[in-house]
Design a protein around this nucleic acid. Structure first.
Lengths: 161, 161
DNA sequence: TTTATAGTTGACTATTTTAGTCGGTTTAAT
DNA sequence: ATTAAACCGACTAAAATAGTCAACTATAAA
């Protein structure tokens, strides 16, 4: 089972994209700053998200990324699958050749668990996440933080001028 | 979230212990051969299982390990927790300091998922696994395999004698 | 009482994955 | 033309996994 910061970063970034939708494309630099994820790492992740047609890109100045479908049509499992290439708890990748070409004692247990996790995550869309109170409040705090640092940069610009 | 061969090995080994209970202690060498897990690695895992009081050991010739509780009182989550020290899908270990000391956008999602997985695994005991058809049939096949290689060793002993 | 068996421990190593960097190239708006 | 952005590939550092190895201790059977 593969569920690490990689998948978490991807979901967080997609949610950031959803939150800032409607105001034109969102640059990875913005996401990087808001969510505290390395820009270069985001590039890697979005290459995969794009190959999986979850986002579309706009190049050039003012460009960035946008969701490629409606928010209710993108679920968390799709995002994690896109960057991890599998949400699989078995060691054999469901082939059943866990032990000398035969299935191991616990093969079916891990299959069951895998589908359990996948079901859970595939029932949660970006729209669902957007509606959650905890997400809304964190997004609001991040907006304020962004504004503050924007004002800071104005002030420091004034000082250095 | 930490769910790799480490946890899978531990559960498989515990199930092997359960299957061969009642005929005295089971040696790690036996488990190693039957389940195809490196002996030295099993030693590491069982050190943790013992510290968590899931198994007890008997030293000396004919010694080995035994379950320390009834089969229905040991669940899969306990075994994985024992070797992995956490079944946690959050990156911050539930502290909520995922991003600059604040919780990240998706913190609660991972908390929910963690408890979902933990619930699922904690509802499955070794006794439950023993009762499954797929487990019984694999165990039977392994028993036959073991017998065959036992007979082989008798034959080769005769030949070399 | 010797001896072989098996657990116990700690240090060490190889491999893989994750996470991230760097340098460059295209592309498109100003 | 300049610049802001996506795009791309190769590279690297750190961590975790999956082991290995050697020395040691306890104990039951011969």
């Amino acid at each position: 089972m593969r569920l690490t910061t990689k998948g978490r970063y991807a979901v967080t970034a997609m949610l950031d994209l959803a939150i800032h939708a409607g105001k034109g494309p969102v640059s990875l630099a913005d996401i990087s700053e808001r969510q505290g994820i390395s820009l270069s790492y985001l590039e890697q992740l979005f290459a995969k998200l794009r190959r999986n047609e979850l986002v579309r890109s706009v190049r050039g100045p003012g460009g960035g990324y946008q969701l490629n479908r409606e928010q209710q049509d993108i679920d968390v499992a799709q995002v994690i699958d896109a960057v991890n290439e599998s949400v699989d708890a078995t060691g054999c990748g469901h082939t059943g050749s866990c032990h000398d070409g035969n299935i191991c004692l616990t093969h079916h247990l891990w299959c069951d668990l895998s589908s359990q996790i996948h079901d859970f995550l595939s029932q949660i869309s970006l729209a669902d996440l957007m509606a959650r109170n905890d997400v809304r409040s964190v997004a609001e705090r991040q907006e304020r933080g962004h504004m503050a640092s924007f004002e800071d940069s104005l002030i420091s610009a004034k000082v250095t001028a």
